[in-house]
Design a protein around this nucleic acid. Sequence first.
DNA 1: ATACATATATGCTGTTGGCATAGAAGTGAT
DNA 2: ATCACTTCTATGCCAACAGCATATATGTAT
Lengths: 247, 247
Amino acid sequence: MQSSNDTAFLASYDSAVFPKPSVTVDVVLLAIRAEALQVLLVRRPGPPEAGRWALPGGFVRLDEDLDDAALRVLRSKAGVENVYAEQLYTFGRPDRDPRTRVMSVAYYALADAALLERVPTGDATRFHTIRVPWTGETGGPADLLDDRGEPVETAFDHREIVGMAVKRLRGKLNYTPVGYALLPPQFTLLQLQRVHEIILGTRVNKDSFRRRMLASGELEQTGATQDGVDHRPAALYRRVPQGGSHG
Amino acid sequence: MQSSNDTAFLASYDSAVFPKPSVTVDVVLLAIRAEALQVLLVRRPGPPEAGRWALPGGFVRLDEDLDDAALRVLRSKAGVENVYAEQLYTFGRPDRDPRTRVMSVAYYALADAALLERVPTGDATRFHTIRVPWTGETGGPADLLDDRGEPVETAFDHREIVGMAVKRLRGKLNYTPVGYALLPPQFTLLQLQRVHEIILGTRVNKDSFRRRMLASGELEQTGATQDGVDHRPAALYRRVPQGGSHG
DNA sequence: ATACATATATGCTGTTGGCATAGAAGTGAT
DNA sequence: ATCACTTCTATGCCAACAGCATATATGTAT
């Protein structure tokens, strides 16, 4: 794709001509915990915004793909691997970071809460409950609450980022059973329904939910059934191996 | 939002510690021309990729919001103002630009073709027809064709960007009559239907399309009717002033 | 006046979502 | 063993809606 003309040009190219912004990735790691949608936040150890809760993030390395940067952040700051992750939006208000111009390429990731058990939570790393009202389609920050339901102090524009992640997720539910990404590999339809309800913040009709999910072709029965419940055990489903196309 | 602690920190902060990427915005300006979905491309005047067709774009200025940068590019490179524009995705493969690390925050914009009449097209700036097959949901480059239907030589990963713009647009049509953004302020329902058909690449049922659009609450009758057509004139509609919320 | 084209209204039908009912399949208490 | 209780799962009904056909309305062209 590169002509010899280009090669000559590249040798003389001075990449320092334009002033450059810093670029970070910030990851909205979502999980269902305590019947609520929660997000992993880390307490900022130093300035700026020291002590406030922020999304795990980091500067994108110069030779690193954006997706890889997001996965690296998940691994290094949350100890998580093999989770569903997808780019969300790029936040670039000039004053969003007091240091200098810092753009954030935001990602969101979905994980089974059970996989996050090993993540050491404490004063520095903790899950917080998300509340997102149903106003508008894109705008609006999320409310982030601690165990006692008190709002937490957050850094930068990270409430906006979480808000958009939830909105995106809500949109996706309309045409995809994405919920499975927040559940263990095998799950019952009712569990999946609860996930949808928690994300949407509304009740869902059980029968039509079942029909819709089964008709989507993205789920298949494992043959196994639930175990250790004090009622009739439900059939366990898994996501169908390589997912169907939409259209 | 900024403590005095931060102030002391900022004074000593050296923003040159981390190597930084360059950041551009590239805009996918879409319009319906000659019964097809077309995109405005500019021929690259110099290296890299000299002579190839590329999306209009430019480096983001250090004090400039991303949205503003996209609007600036539209104004300066396409002579267009007051069009629907929205952030699409950020493309950041490390090798996508041969010069150095360049990330592109891609936007897409929709404009009434009539407004673009004044855009001088020629050897340097031209609309090209888009073909996007129905494979997958996110992936896949668009085919870009010239007047004669021949594929054109494109720069960087811009075919991918155009492909994603069309996919995003197709998705939006499912829950919004976005098509009006590609039409003059007043339009008939059939015109809107044709826009949908061109974007989707499929035929649409006329009756249910009408019903759906009218039920969406986003359109209202102007009272005027079509003029200068050789058949019964249709009622003209416009987008309802401030748009309803979804959900 | 007539042909022609599209607009618009109305009705029929098959599909789908919301809802109710009933039997099935487990656990735990009596 | 039987019963109470819970959730699972299948089935049927009804209302809403998309696809389709038909009929009438309203303009231009000949």
